[in-house]
């Protein structure tokens, strides 16, 4: 099978000070597929996710060894423009975190900071992004209300729309549904299915069913190591390793 990798991680080690949080992670992400990162709390999956857009750079005292390449280029090379990199890799966080601005301003923000000035273009892209975020119909008459007036699920879809507005190539999602009720969760999952056609999606989740439902590939992390990765169907039915099976079937974690 011909495989096209969008992001490849090779022997990635990650340290918080002297604590080694990730050990030699090698994992590839295919273009236009959704990959789920699963594992118990503290296993390093979120840390790994945040290595992919260098969000960990914000934490003092961290160190990264090994490499992560996007389209073949190491994103930890000194010459890489981190700001530009982050506009190519969108991120959705655990808790919905809209800015205390209007709905419109939230989505337009990414365009404005990236230098888009044309008002018509901004309005067009805001609408398009809100449609892609499956939120347009609910908010089209109240675009200038505060984003904080939306429900939690709507806020999270707004955050997705906000990330999509800058037209990233990759979308990172860090437990995007953990703060949402089941109905809002279902909407986000449907959305992930649609977005897969255009974006490469990497999602951290604590919810096994969610991983099984939304992802093509699943990677299981445990104690800072990548234990097993493979097609989601195979991983959930015939995992190669006992640890994986124990975790997936809920025997620990």
């Amino acid at each position: 099978m011909e495989q096209e990798y969008k992001i490849t991680s090779k022997n990635l080690d990650f340290y918080y000070g002297s604590v080694k949080a990730l050990q030699s992670i090698s994992l590839n992400f295919q273009l236009h597929q959704a990959t789920a990162l699963i594992g118990p709390s503290g296993c390093g999956k979120s840390t790994f996710l945040r290595c992919l857009n260098r969000m960990n750079d914000l934490i003092p005292g961290i160190r990264v060894e090994g490499e992560i390449c996007m389209d073949g280029e190491n994103i930890y090379k000194p010459s890489v423009d981190v700001v530009r990199l982050r506009s190519r890799i969108g991120m959705v966080f655990q808790k919905p975190n809209p800015f205390p601005k209007t709905i419109f301003e939230n989505v337009a923000y990414g365009l404005k900071v990236n230098g888009v000035k044309d008002k018509n273009l901004i309005a067009e892209r805001v609408e398009k992004s809100l449609r892609s975020g499956a939120l347009w119909d609910e908010v089209k008459d109240r675009l200038h209300d505060s984003a904080l007036s939306l429900s939690g699920g709507q806020q999270q879809r707004l955050c997705i729309a906000r990330a999509l507005a800058v037209e990233p190539e990759v979308l990172l999602m860090d437990e995007p549904c953990s703060a949402l009720d089941p109905i809002a969760t279902q909407k986000i999952e449907e959305l992930i299915h649609e977005l897969k056609d255009k974006y490469t999606i990497i999602i951290v989740t604590h919810n096994m069913q969610q991983a099984a439902r939304v992802s093509d590939v699943t990677a299981f992390f445990y104690m800072g190591k990548l234990i097993e990765a493979g097609e989601t169907d195979t991983m959930f039915t015939r995992p190669r390793l006992k640890t994986t099976e124990d975790y997936i079937t809920g025997r620990f974690g």
């Binding site: 857009n53 982050r86 800015f99 900071v113």
Partner: peptide
């Protein structure tokens, strides 16, 4: 909240933009 800073940086804003706009 730091989540505002992360959200802004995650969208490709510079640190200065993040500070003055958010």
């Amino acid at each position: 909240p730091d989540t505002y800073r992360e959200a802004s940086l995650g969208l490709g804003a510079t640190k200065l933009q993040t500070i003055f706009r958010v």
